[in-house]
Design a protein around this nucleic acid. Structure first.
Length: 950
DNA sequence: TACCCGTCGTAC
DNA sequence: GACGTACGACGGGTAA
């Protein structure tokens, strides 16, 4: 039996409703404002429909001044007098409530907040669930099982539990009072502390917990903050008094259970109809009383009583934590465990070490983490290791203590190696690629990398963005980790800036006192273990176990090896090129300034806009959020009228090359290895592709000669060669497979030039009669379709009339009818499932697929169509990488993969292995998956990257 | 001075 | 508003 008590904050809902329609008020048949009445009952009924409460009361404010006014005469003094046309609606609402038989409560000298707090506390002591419906921030202080806030939002009702409060405000419910005391609340004339905003307040409270403790530690703060807080001390504590809720409101005796019987719609209907709420009445099922009055508010566009909707965006809205969104239920035991800090034992003796290692062995599955003296995996040395085989116990094994070495390095290495390479041991880590690299250099090649929590979290939601341990702990466990920076709160080492090759941040974990270090390191391990227990279940729930185990996890060491291998760069060639570019840029810059008649910063789009559209009176062709666009397409168009835009295009091309590549790449050469080591990020995309950063080696120019010169600066090691293999048209092949379109499949089966064939089909000519122009158009459409390109864009791209572009697209879908069907089916399926999946089952959630906003809906549809194509191609390349890596090992080859650029694998190999490697690549890449059409692969070799695939 | 956002441009 | 997925440089504003 559901005995949940629902408490509706009457004035909160009334005010919100009134102001929601403020610009366009609803009126009853007598012409009086009825926004509040209507909004209030719409909220009430939708709440009843959704939650079907059995115990319910509307809580109203005292009509006489409250004890707060007695405390602080300024209280709510700022608040504007309640508008008369709102005040008039309150008795109407109460009358209808009474007719319906909905209990309402009002206590003199107490605000509704205090009454609700009193009732909520009573529920808490009885362990009875309680839901408070209110939009007021200060009520968030009541949240904590079994009490939650229901907040009426744009799209229905958000349910706020502790996690939700934290996510929205970065403070816990019990800190809300102190939080509001700091930031103040202008609407209630709560002063707060001047100069302290949300961010600062949340930050201070996360560090000091409470207002008192914060004021006890003013001396630890920066001078600016200290003086603000000092000045606002009185206001802060006064504010808190005002915000604090009274839990001792004298409740009226009798009927305290607020049981909600059947509503008496019959009695309420006439009153409601008098307010024009005919639609709401219809919904109640009472036969509508015909009136001759005009349209009531219920018939106004967009505010009609909405019938039950299909689940829409917002339903799993922002108040859901990722854990809840994924539908994961934690047991009571887990909730309690996860809220606690775990223990960490400092291991300093061989006996302790032996004990922990055998414990890990017995557990079989354990979280492992390496602490290092630097973030650079090529130079970092381990300082210690942490280990956890349960959710709340960890150990930290430091290599050395203040007195020197605690373990013989070789002894520790052997002990750990025996554990980490034991085939029966399953290692759990967070971003283990990093630990793998460190351990490899230290002489341990971990055996079974079983579970990377970062990758698991990514697979559970590929578009969450950000999978750091701190964030995962907060999102999935509601646990706040010790920040790395907090290890250095005192005696911070002065940062040395501007040193070449240094990050500028010299804070070293090795300088942290051992007990604090152990707490931090131990936390990493047990939090990782906790995340593992949670995410492990989510893998099954989201049906991604297979792709996790057989694709993503095995890829971790492969990527680690690629990053460690790096790629050679001909720095001299680039330095020469930089000098040439600088001369050219100087010249072009001068030409532009001469044309403009004055110097200006060409790289500033603002200044350029001024020159183009005001001084030179050129016609702006496209707008951006902040002004007129000056992008390439616009400048090309303007170049027909004026010589300056063409020069700007040249200037942009040269400066782009110089700043992004020619000057930046040599700076990325690692001082130790003399090579460039990119990061291949496994969790960086929503589709399943890898991404590359620091530097990004997946966007090195290739299309024109100036750009190719940069690719030419990438070289293999002395006397070796590059071998590059790329899939031909992999995304179109995938599209052919996924859509099953006969004509497109036929093109690939015959090994034809697919763009030529497309042109032939849509223009109705024989393939060998297709003109270059026709092929260009077909190629643009072929790619455009995969991105959901519009006729608008196509006509722009091709310089054709819009009408003609539309005809081409129509001809295209006429030719490839399977593609149209594929698009429709994919969108329809996404609408039902709220996600799309690739061939190997990698999901991407698309909660906005049911958006009523046309632009949003269209954008999500493009995502939905593109993701299975791009993502399946990514799956295939990843599978190929695993296969190639395995073959290289099996055949004892020295050749190694060094780069992946979405459809291309680049290897470096000794000349003697070249033929074997080429054959292996061809075989493993074309055989990576079996599709309805063959996967074409072309292999080339060269002594420069730019020498291949011209 | 450090960070954030907008615009632009490179890749597949 | 109109083409999907990335990363990163630069300008220019704001906060520290």
């Amino acid at each position: 039996m559901d005995d949940t008590l629902y408490l509706l904050d009457g004035y909160s809902v009334i005010y919100r409703s009134y102001f929601a329609f403020f610009r366009n008020p609803l009126r009853n048949p007598r012409g009086e404002n009825s926004s509040a009445v209507f909004g209030f009952f719409r909220t009430l009924f939708s709440l009843f429909r959704e939650y079907q409460p059995r115990h319910f009361a509307v809580i109203m404010d005292s009509r006489v001044p409250t004890f707060r006014h007695e405390q602080y005469e300024q209280y709510k003094a700022n608040r504007q007098e309640t508008p008369e046309d709102l005040r008039a609606q309150i008795p109407v609402i109460e009358e209808i409530l009474q007719a319906l038989g909905v209990p309402s409560v009002r206590v003199d000298r107490y605000e509704a907040d205090d009454v609700m707090a009193t009732l909520a506390e009573r529920c808490r002591s009885e362990g009875r669930p309680c839901r408070v419906i209110s939009g007021d921030k200060d009520l968030l202080q009541l949240v904590g099982e079994p009490v939650r806030i229901l907040r009426p939002g744009k799209d229905g009702i958000d349910e706020m539990d502790r996690d939700a409060v934290y996510r929205d405000w970065q403070v816990w419910p019990e800190q809300i009072r102190d939080f509001l005391s700091l930031i103040g609340d202008t609407s209630d004339n709560i002063p707060g502390v001047k100069g302290i905003g949300k961010k600062t307040a949340a930050d201070l409270l996360s560090r000091y917990g409470t207002l008192e403790n914060l004021y006890d530690h003013l001396d630890d703060l920066t001078p600016a903050r200290r003086s603000k807080l000092d000045a606002g001390r009185h206001e802060a504590f006064l504010s808190r008094g005002l915000i604090s809720l009274a839990c001792d409101a004298p409740l009226p005796a009798g009927g305290a259970d607020y049981e909600l019987g059947d509503l008496d719609y019959q009695a309420a209907a006439p009153l409601m109809i008098a307010q024009g709420m005919t639609k709401l009445v219809e919904q109640t099922g009472v036969s509508p009383v015909v009136t001759e009055e005009g349209a009531g508010p219920g018939e106004l566009p967009g505010d009609g009583a909405a019938p039950e909707k299909a689940p829409r965006e917002g339903e799993l809205g922002p108040s859901w934590s990722p854990r809840e969104r994924a539908g994961l239920v934690l047991s009571r035991d887990e909730q309690e465990r996860f809220a606690r800090e775990g223990r960490c034992e400092l291991v300093t003796t061989r006996e302790d070490l032996t004990r922990w290692i055998s414990r890990a062995r017995e557990a079989g599955t354990f979280a492992f983490d390496v602490e290092t003296d630097s973030l650079d995996p090529l130079t970092a040395n381990p300082l210690g290791f942490s280990l956890a085989c349960s959710a709340d116990e960890a150990c930290y094994i430091p290599l050395r203590g203040p007195e020197g070495a605690l373990f013989q390095e070789e002894y520790l290495r052997q002990e750990l190696r025996s554990l980490l390479t034991d085939p029966a041991c399953r290692i759990v880590g967070q971003n283990f690629k990093y630990d793998y690299k460190i351990l490899s250099r230290w002489g341990i090649r971990p055996g079974q990398i079983y579970f990377d929590t970062m990758i698991a979290a990514w697979l559970v939601d590929t578009s969450a963005g950000g999978y750091g341990l701190d964030r995962l702990a907060r999102d999935y466990l509601g646990y706040r980790t010790i920040a790395f920076a907090d290890l250095f709160s005192e005696g911070e080492a002065p940062a040395q800036k501007g040193r070449r090759g240094s990050s500028g941040d010299d804070r070293n974990f090795g300088d942290v006192p051992l007990d604090l270090a152990a707490r931090y390191a131990g936390e990493d391990a047990f939090v990782t273990y906790r995340l593992y227990t949670v995410l492990d279940r989510l893998l099954d729930k989201r049906e991604v176990r297979d792709i996790f185990t057989s694709l993503e996890m095995p890829l971790v060491p492969v990527l680690a090896e690629m990053e460690t291998a790096g790629i050679g760069l001909d720095v001299f060639a680039l330095e020469e090129y930089s000098r040439e570019l600088s001369l050219t840029i100087e010249r072009v810059e001068q030409e532009i300034h001469d044309l403009a008649g004055h110097p200006f910063n060409i790289a500033s789009t603002r200044q350029l806009q001024e020159v183009l559209f005001q001084e030179r009176k050129l016609q702006p062709l496209k707008k951006t959020k902040t002004g007129y666009s000056t992008d390439t397409a616009v400048l090309q168009e303007l170049a027909r009228e004026d010589p300056l835009p063409e020069r700007v295009l040249a200037y942009r091309m040269y400066t782009k090359l110089r700043s992004t590549y020619v000057d930046a790449l040599p700076r990325m050469v690692h001082p130790r290895t003399g090579r460039i080591h990119t990061s291949l990020n496994q969790t960086g995309t929503a589709t399943g592709r890898l991404s590359s950063a620091e530097p990004n080696l997946q966007n090195i120019p290739v299309r024109d000669d100036q750009g190719r010169r940069i690719r030419d600066a990438f070289v293999p090691r002395q006397d070796w060669v590059f071998v590059s293999a790329d899939y031909s048209q992999i995304e179109l092949v995938v599209l052919a497979h996924l859509s099953g379109d006969e004509a497109l499949m036929e093109a690939f089966r015959n090994g034809e030039d697919v763009h030529r064939r497309t042109a032939g089909l849509i223009f109705g000519v024989a393939p060998d009669e297709v003109s270059a122009e026709q092929r260009r158009i077909a190629k643009t459409i072929n790619f455009g379709v995969m991105y959901g390109m519009s006729a608008f864009r196509l006509s722009n791209e091709l310089g054709l009339p819009r009408k003609q572009a539309e005809e081409f697209i129509q001809a295209y879908f006429g030719t490839y009818q399977g593609i149209g069907r594929f698009i429709e089916a994919t969108v329809a399926r996404a609408e039902v499932e709220g996600e799309v999946r690739t061939l190997l089952g990698r999901p991407r959630p698309v909660p906005d697929i049911l958006s009523r906003n046309k632009t949003v809906k269209a954008a999500v549809e493009r995502v939905v169509v593109n993701t299975p194509i791009q993502g399946t191609a990514a799956d295939i390349v990843k599978k190929a990488m695993l296969a190639v890596s395995q073959r290289l090992r099996q055949e004892n080859l020295q050749a190694r993969m060094i780069l992946q650029v979405h459809d291309e694998l680049i290897l470096e190999c000794p000349p003697g292995e070249e033929q074997q490697v080429r054959a292996l690549l061809l075989e493993e890449m074309s055989g990576a998956v079996s599709l309805a059409v063959p996967l074409g692969v072309s292999v080339e070799s060269g002594d420069r990257w730019g020498a291949m695939h011209q």
